[in-house]
Nucleic acid binder design. Structure first.
Lengths: 348, 348
DNA sequence: AGTTCTGCTGCAAACGTTTGTAGTCGCATG
DNA sequence: CATGCGACTACAAACGTTTGCAGCAGAACT
């Protein structure tokens, strides 16, 4: 029913190949012939069938973007940046959501494989070997995780975690909890490694709680464990969990940052919206999206490029972190009520 | 480089058509032949090329989903519901973001047209005639707006707005502001119409501020106008704007709901996260996503189906709405400090 | 005048599938 | 024994493009 290149050829009295060239190689066709063709195409409402084109050129001009959870505010900025960056290069981005499920992840890559020129795999939960296998089906750029032999863009979240821990220790905290993220997350391992090291170096103790789903609910659910751990500060895997935790602490009458300091990671839009505003590690998500698109488009064909782009992070100090019980630096201007009496409300 | 159906045919000693049928019409091929073929395909790592298949069958088994802004928390639940619903029917969903730009919107529909079996157009900002034209390129289901002659699923947001206004009037508010949404939004017109009517009926005055971008920033930016309007309650186009407004009011020392009540629309995850928790109109977004997919898949071919599905909304009363200055109902347990003295802080 | 070049266009094969039609074989039926 | 049937498989055309090659003017050299 829709007009094909053949209809246009017939209508303008030239061969189909000329029509084809009129669109995709204008310099090869006489200017007025081209005008004729375009006019005919216009009246017929002709649109090139990209699937057919892809079949022969091998390039779809689409790129796939797979994220763990589209509802996680970490991803939208990345997605939007990738989209507009790609659009500027005449590419379209197809986004898909895996619900944090490695199975769905694999299925989606395979499904996307033949319809896109490459896939941006963000925060994958699969194993490295799985990812390597998939990279034989379609060019892959991994985001938020380095995979040997594959191009990847990561954030220097270890640096961020270190800064966060040092910030807390500087405020006088000696016992810090790390609210871990999801199993299979490289970022999570990285944060854990770096914060453990930073704590030890600074002479503080770090207790790890997790792994946990990277959600607000999961942050709330760990409030109990945090209190039981008797720490005075918490570093959370992401802002979502930090917010969930603050919320649950608030419900229990525990004041942040007066009784417990909480630091998040990601600097999502959320962090400026909460009361108190969240101290957090800013990750350059938009830049990551753009970089990933660039890498994919650059080595479009020669796979197995092993480039690794690392983006810097920084600590954004807001209101959810304050002086700890052991004063060592800075003016200790806050009172620290005892933590007792809180446990009674614990079962709610 | 990747294995084709031809390779599999060669490897298993049968004709390509047999291989094809082994996959897409198992009952037509001998069981052990089929086993042979599948085995060969397995070792070769063969995956059918969906583009080639689509070329001949005319069905891509993909559906497009276009939203105004993926970062708006209203959309993710809709997207996720549509995705998983579609996946259950062996369809994949490609999401794209328009940045609230009608031009990009049209471009995306056109780009998607040949690569999907249909498009879910959510909250479009285009004109009806534009949409009708596009529907000739690809089957369309419109979400959040009725378009004559096209299948659509909408929320009964008029009812929601009415409930919200009645709720506020019931609390004693007589002067209410409506924080309008974006130009071109059907939902916005609907809210405006219904709330104006409801206010008049209940003997209250409604002042409309807008149109505005449906963002948090835009909500904050209107705080000044809200104060100047001298109202005691505000109904916002969506939760995002409501939150932005509350935030800006808070900065100015204006207490919500003690001095001004604020009601949102959408009941996004945000609304339970704010302090005070937001009174809002719940819209069944997940159900809308599923319904839209169903409609698209149902009348896949016969376009111009004129079905219109309307989903009910309901008012969720939380903490951001309280008694107004004119007590008529309910216990007026809050003090109402004067609004004066606020303007001095206005320029921040 | 002959040769080469340039600018343009047509021809036809190819991309990886699906599917209508026709063919083969063994077997039961009349 | 011819016929028909059922189960299976091969053949080939088609889907809508792109692109290497060849052809053909006319212009520009030698």
């Amino acid at each position: 029913m829709p007009a094909t290149i053949r209809d246009v050829a017939k209508a303008s009295g030239v061969h189909v190949s000329t029509v084809s060239r009129a669109f995709s190689a204008p310099q090869l066709v006489n200017a007025e012939t081209r005008a004729h063709v375009l006019a005919a195409a216009e009246v017929l409402g002709y649109r090139p069938n990209r699937a057919a084109r892809a079949l022969i050129t091998g390039r779809t001009h689409n790129i796939g973007l797979i994220v763990a959870d589209i509802a996680n505010p970490f991803f939208p900025p990345l997605i939007k940046a990738a989209e507009s960056h790609a659009r500027g290069r005449d590419y379209h981005v197809f986004v898909a959501d895996t619900n944090e499920d490695p199975g769905v992840e694999e299925e989606l890559v395979l499904a996307l494989a033949k319809q896109v020129d490459g896939v941006l795999l963000c925060s994958p939960r699969m194993s490295n070997t799985q990812i390597e296998q998939l990279s034989r089906e379609v060019p892959l750029v991994v985001v938020n995780r380095p995979v040997p032999g594959l191009p990847a863009v990561v954030m220097d979240v270890a640096q961020g975690a270190r800064l966060a821990v040092e910030h807390l220790v500087g405020l006088g905290h000696r016992e810090i909890a790390l609210l871990g993220g999801p199993r299979g997350s490289w970022t999570n391992r990285e944060i854990r490694r770096a914060s453990t090291l930073a704590a030890r170096t600074a002479g503080a103790e770090l207790v790890v709680l997790g792994p946990n789903a990277p959600t607000e609910e999961s942050g709330s659910a760990q409030a109990e464990a945090v209190l039981r751990a008797g720490v005075s500060a918490v570093l959370a895997y992401n802002d979502l969990m930090a917010v969930g935790l603050i919320d649950a602490l608030d419900h229990r009458g525990v004041k942040v940052p007066d009784q417990i300091s909480v630091v998040g990671i990601d600097d999502t839009a959320l962090s400026r919206r909460t009361r108190p505003m969240l101290t957090t590690v800013a990750t350059p998500t938009a830049a990551a999206g753009r970089a990933a698109v660039d890498m994919l488009l650059q080595h479009g064909d020669d796979r197995r490029t092993t480039a690794l782009v690392t983006l810097q992070t920084e600590l954004v100090i807001r209101d959810s972190s304050g002086p700890g019980p052991h004063r060592t630096a800075g003016p200790g201007r806050r009172q620290l009520p005892p933590l007792d009496g809180v446990a009674s409300e614990s079962r709610e």
